[in-house]
Design a protein around this nucleic acid. Structure first.
Length: 653
RNA sequence: CGCGGGAUAGAGCAGUUGGCAGCUCGUCGGGCUCAUAACCCGGAGGUCGAGGGUUCAAGUCCCUCUCCCGCAACCA
C-alpha cells in the first residue's frame, strides 16, 4: 500500500432541486483532481454527497405532499437524480455521504455534545421581538418603526431559546489561519472573508447552531426540541464519512488531515471560518486547504430558475459526450474565477481542441502507421534537427503539467498539453511523412517520425486521462500502449512505447460538431426540458370567508407621479390620487417591468387598508395589484389597468 | 462613502516578482494533401475603461473618477 494519501471532497449538495451545470462543474473538477492524484500514485479518498436537512427541504416536501425523506430520496436516488448524474459523468468518488445516514446523525449528536461539554456551545437566547398574531420572531433590525414588518402591529420583547457556538473565541486563530497561511485559496477570497466577517463591526459573531422553528434535522439528543443547525450538521460530513464518532468507517487516521475541500465561492465563508473554528473547538487537526472556485454564469448573469437560464448537464452530456463536457468545463474556465458559459463556446471548444487538434492528430498519426507500415511500427529513435523541439516539449510536459495541477489550475495544465498537441500537428507538416513515404531509402526516417508522433500522443493521452478517462483509454488502446506505457512514470519518458507496437485507426474519437445545426437542436432541447410555455401560480385550496375578503379595501387610483427609488433597482414610488383629496404614496417592486413615465396618468387598482410599511426609508401605504404568470420560466408581471372613466377612489366590490 | 470582483484586438480571455502586449475564435492572404472541409505559415486589427502620480521603464505599483457584475439590502 502506498504511504501517500490524499483526501478530496466536493461540497455536499442540497437536494432541494435538480442539480445543474454548476454542481457538475465542481464535481468534475474534484474528480479530475482525484484521478490525477491516483495517477501520481496516491492512495486517494474522494467523497461527495448530499446535505439533506433544513427548513427549505421540509417546506418543499410539504408542498409536494411527501415526507422530507421521501422528497430527498427521489432527488438523490430517483431516475436522473444525483447518483445517476454522477454515474453518467463518470465520477469516481469512493464514498457518497447523505446527512440522513444513521451513522452521520449519531456522530453529529456526539460532536454537538462534545462541544457543549467543553463550553463552546452554550444555551443562550435568540433575543428578538415577537409578534403574537403572526407567531413570528424578528430581530431589532428587521422591525419597521419598531413594529412587526408583516402586520405592523406592536411587538413584544421575547426570547427564544437556542444554542450558540462560541465562534468569537476562535476569531484570532481563524484570522491568523486565513492571513498567514494558504489555507484558503485563491488568495483573493481571503480579504473578503476577513473584512466581512472577522474584522467587521462587532467582530466575529457567535453562531446560532440550533433551531426550534422546524423539525427536519438532527435532534440535539439532550434537548430534543432543538435540531442542529444545518451547517454544523453539514460541515462535519467531511469527517464523519471517515469515521469521526462512528463505527461505520475507520479511515480517519489514514486520510485526515491531508484533505482538500473544493467549494463554491458562496460557501467559502462557512468552510474558511466556521469549519476551522469547529475543529479548533474539538482540538482536531485542520484540513490542508479550502479552494473556493468560481461560478459558471450565463451571459454575464447568474444562473437562476427565475431567469430560465439553468443549464441541464444531462442534455449536454448526451449530445456531446461526457468526456467532451468534462474537458470543456475544465479547459475553458479559470478555476478560481467566474466563467461565462455558452453553448457556442462549448461547441467551439470541442471542435477546435478535441476534434481538430487532438482527435485529428490521433487519426492522421495512426492512419499513416497503418498505411505505410501495415499497422505495426518498429521502435526507431531519432534526434534530427526537426525532432528536437517536439521531443524536448514532450519530455518537459509532465513537469509543466504537474506544476499547474498542484495549483489546481486545470485550464493551464490543459493548455500545456495542447501546446504539445499543436506542436505535433506542426511537426507533421514540417516532416511531411507522405513525401518520405515515396522514397524507399527514407523508410527508417519515416518510421522514426511516426514513432515520435505516437509517443507524443501517448504522453498527452496519459496526462489527459484524469479529464477524459474513457476517451484517453480509447486513444491509448489505438496506440497499442501496454499498461506500463500508461503510467505516470511513463509520461516522463520519451521512448517508452515498445518496439513493434500495433496501431489501429478506428472511428473518430471526437467527431466534429456541426455548430449551426447543433445549436438549434440544443436550444429546442433545453426549451423542451424547461417549464411549459406559460405557467400559472398554483391555485389556492384554502377558502377565504366572505367577511375576511370584504375587509380588503380595493380602490381605483390615478397615478399622479411615478419615479424610481434611488439606490434600488426594483422599487418605483407612486404618488396616487385615491379620491380622498390627500395623495397616497405606494412603493412597488416592479421597475423590472415598467418605466415610471409609462405609468403616469394610468388608472390602477390598489388595496389601501394594508398597514403602512417602510422600504428603503420610504413609506408605502397599500399595494398595487398586478397579474403574475411565467413564460418559459420567466416571470411576467402586468399591473391591473382600469378604464380611465372610473373615478379615483371607486371601490371594488 | 455597506463588502467584494471586473474593464486588455470584432467576440471570449491570459498576462507571474514592473522590462519589446499575448492566446483562442473570427477575418484576409498563402502552403499542404497524411488526416475528422481537418493541419501548417503569414497579414490586418489594441492610447491595456478615464485622468493624475511614482519610475530609466507601468497592463502590472499609488491616488481620483466612470461604467459593469455578484453579495447584502429591498422586492406590500
Amino acid at each position: 500500500m502506498s504511504e501517500k494519501t490524499f483526501y478530496i471532497t466536493t461540497p455536499i449538495y442540497y437536494p432541494s432541486d435538480k442539480l445543474h451545470i454548476g454542481h457538475t462543474y465542481c464535481t468534475v473538477a474534484t474528480d479530475a483532481m482525484a484521478r490525477y492524484k491516483r495517477l501520481c500514485g496516491y492512495d486517494v479518498m474522494f467523497l461527495t454527497g448530499t446535505d439533506e436537512h433544513g427548513q427549505k427541504i421540509e417546506d418543499k416536501a410539504k408542498e409536494a405532499g411527501v415526507t422530507p425523506k421521501e422528497f430527498v430520496d427521489r432527488i438523490v436516488e430517483g431516475e436522473r437524480g444525483i447518483l445517476d448524474l454522477w454515474k453518467l459523468m463518470n465520477i469516481s468518488n469512493d464514498r457518497f455521504i447523505r446527512t440522513t445516514d444513521e451513522y452521520h446523525v449519531r456522530a453529529i449528536q456526539r460532536v454537538f455534545r462534545r462541544m457543549y461539554d467543553k463550553g463552546d456551545i452554550y444555551k443562550g437566547t435568540y433575543k428578538g421581538k415577537y409578534c403574537k398574531p403572526c407567531e413570528s420572531f424578528w430581530t431589532e433590525s428587521q422591525l419597521v418603526d419598531g413594529k412587526c414588518p408583516d402586520c405592523g402591529r406592536e411587538v413584544q420583547d421575547a426570547e427564544e431559546e437556542a444554542y450558540f457556538f462560541r465562534a468569537s473565541k476562535y476569531a484570532a486563530r481563524v484570522r491568523d489561519l486565513l492571513t498567514t497561511t494558504d489555507f484558503l485559496e485563491p488568495a483573493s477570497r481571503v480579504n473578503e472573508m476577513v473584512n466581512n466577517f472577522i474584522d467587521c463591526e462587532g467582530g466575529l459573531q457567535d453562531l446560532c447552531v440550533s433551531r426550534t422553528s422546524f423539525t427536519w434535522g438532527i435532534p440535539v439528543d439532550f434537548d430534543p426540541k432543538h435540531v442542529v443547525y444545518v451547517w454544523l450538521d453539514a460541515l462535519f460530513n467531511y469527517m464523519t464519512a471517515l469515521g469521526l464518532e462512528n463505527d461505520a468507517h475507520n479511515d480517519l487516521d489514514k486520510y485526515w488531515p491531508n484533505a482538500v475541500h473544493f467549494v463554491g465561492k458562496e460557501i467559502v465563508r462557512f468552510h474558511s471560518i466556521y469549519w476551522p473554528a469547529f475543529l479548533m473547538s474539538l482540538d482536531l487537526p485542520l484540513p490542508q486547504k479550502v479552494y473556493g472556485h468560481g461560478w459558471l454564469v450565463m451571459d454575464g448573469g447568474k444562473m437562476s430558475k427565475s431567469k430560465g437560464n439553468v443549464v441541464d448537464p444531462y442534455i449536454l452530456a448526451e449530445r456531446f459526450g461526457v468526456d467532451a463536457l468534462r474537458f470543456f468545463l475544465l479547459r475553458t474556465f479559470p478555476f478560481g474565477s467566474d466563467g461565462n458559459f455558452s453553448n457556442e463556446l462549448l461547441i467551439n471548444t470541442i471542435n477546435v481542441d478535441l476534434a481538430n487538434d487532438l482527435g485529428n492528430l490521433v487519426s492522421r498519426s495512426t492512419a499513416m502507421v497503418e498505411k505505410y507500415f501495415g499497422g505495426t511500427l518498429p521502435k526507431l529513435e531519432s534526434a534530427e534537427n526537426a525532432d528536437v523541439e517536439l521531443l524536448s516539449m514532450a519530455k518537459a510536459l509532465r513537469g509543466r503539467y504537474e506544476a499547474q495541477m498542484e495549483k489546481y489550475q486545470f485550464q493551464n495544465a490543459l493548455e500545456e498539453v495542447f501546446k504539445v498537441i499543436q506542436r505535433a500537428n506542426k511537426y507533421i507538416d514540417e516532416t511531411a511523412p507522405w513525401v518520405l513515404a515515396r522514397d524507399e531509402a527514407k523508410r527508417d526516417r519515416l518510421g522514426a517520425v511516426l514513432y515520435n508522433l505516437l509517443e507524443t500522443v501517448r504522453i498527452c493521452a496519459v496526462l489527459l486521462t484524469p479529464f477524459m478517462p474513457e476517451s484517453c483509454e480509447k486513444i491509448l488502446d489505438r496506440l497499442g500502449a501496454t499498461a506500463c506505457e500508461r503510467t505516470w512514470e511513463s509520461a516522463a519518458v520519451f521512448g517508452a512505447l515498445h518496439d513493434g507496437v500495433t496501431v489501429t485507426k478506428g472511428e473518430a474519437i471526437f467527431p466534429r460538431i456541426d455548430a449551426e445545426k447543433e445549436l438549434e437542436a440544443l436550444q429546442a432541447a433545453q426549451k423542451n426540458a424547461q417549464k411549459p410555455a406559460v405557467e400559472l401560480e398554483p391555485y389556492a385550496d384554502e377558502s377565504v370567508d366572505f367577511d375576511t375578503f370584504c375587509k380588503s379595501d380595493f380602490r381605483a387610483v390615478k397615478v399622479k407621479a411615478c419615479d424610481a427609488v434611488k439606490k434600488s433597482d426594483k422599487l418605483l414610488r407612486f404618488t396616487l390620487d385615491d379620491g380622498s383629496g390627500t395623495d397616497r404614496q405606494i412603493l412597488s417592486g416592479i421597475h423590472k417591468f415598467y418605466e415610471p413615465e409609462q405609468l403616469v396618468g394610468k388608472t390602477l387598482l390598489a388595496i389601501i387598508n394594508l398597514p403602512p410599511r417602510k422600504m428603503m426609508g420610504l413609506e408605502s401605504c397599500g399595494m398595487l395589484i398586478s397579474a403574475i404568470h411565467y413564460e418559459s420560466g420567466e416571470e411576467k408581471l402586468n399591473l391591473i389597468m382600469l378604464d380611465d372613466k372610473i373615478p379615483a377612489g371607486a371601490k371594488m366590490c
